[in-house]
Simulated scan of single mutants.
Amino acid sequence: MTAVPELRFVSVLVRDGDGWGVRRHDPAAPLLTAFDYAATRGDGAFEAMHVFDGAANKPGRHLERMARSLHNLQIVGPPYAAWRALVDDLVAQWPAGVEGVLKLIISRGQEGGPSDQDPTVYGTLAPIDRLLIEQRRTGIDVVTLTIGYDADVREQSPWLLGSTKYLSYAVNMAAKREAARRGADDVLFTSADGQALEGPSATILWQVGNELRTTSSHTGILRGTTQEEIFAKAGAHGLAPIVTAATVEDVAAADGVWMTSSTRGVAAVRTLDGRPVRQAPQTTALLQRLSGLPLP
């Protein structure tokens, strides 16, 4: 598989009478206005899914999560069929043998306009960062960083937009930069009361005996589509899926630990805060197969 950096595709959903239509857009041409809420407020939602050999990975799960995000944001978006048409149009332009990341983006619209009823909606498709593909093979080093409040705060405070994949990723990107500054590849966020939560763009999984565990969405974490896909299949392979609370020490003591995401797939955690993590290569291989992404 060879990444082709110049590959870039953009398609837009536009109002077409009472429905929505797909229009292809020059990726080198401007798309947003200076007053779009995506640029001025980060007020909107997005999804990112893997594309390979003519197919998007689990688009249904991504569109279900998009619907939950839009409900939480109180944005009226296109219907499911229009989103699927946008996904299909982008995938149809993608060459075989190249791993791509397809992003669906929606903002509230224009500041000063009828924003809730006239959102900006588009999709992009580009090659996946080669580093993410390499991490699928080699594993990753992870550090813990606090989010600064207790695990139940976001569920009790809906305005904090827990479980919502919103556009504003400034904090997530800052956490990634801090991880790099510390010589690590990724972050495991922790709550002020000591619970392990999620990564900036990944879900944590860990194995205890024949149990495959992850953290609960009741903490306000984003429900991981790759984690859900794996959990739906794990039982048939002798792993009991468990959703539970855990501390960092619980995770560090596990028989294996992984970070899962839609673009990187499944990456085994090698170290957590500099401490070696027990490896489970057979489980790693199984989880990577269950994720539906190309094997490393």
Rank of each mutant, 00 (worst) to 15 (best):
R8K: 15
V14Q: 13
E64M: 11
V22R: 05
R61P: 07
L32M: 02
R41W: 07
A39N: 09
F9I: 07
R23K: 07
E47I: 01
G54C: 08
R15A: 14
V12A: 04
E47W: 00
L13F: 03
D36Y: 04
A29R: 03
P30D: 01
E47C: 04
V12Y: 04
V12R: 00
R68T: 08
R61G: 13
F46N: 02
V51W: 10
V10P: 01
G60P: 07
Q74H: 13
M49T: 10
L32W: 04
V14I: 10
E47Y: 01
R65A: 09
V14Y: 09
L73M: 04
V51C: 11
R41E: 02
A56T: 06
V14S: 13
H62D: 11
R65W: 09
G60C: 05
S11A: 13
A45S: 01
G54K: 10
G21V: 04
D36C: 00
G54R: 09
W20Q: 06
R23E: 12
I75H: 07
R61H: 14
V14E: 15
R8Q: 14
E64T: 12
S11W: 04
T33Q: 06
Y37L: 05
G17Q: 09
A28D: 13
D16H: 09
P30I: 00
T40G: 02
D36V: 03
L32K: 03
D16A: 11
P59T: 11
P30Y: 00
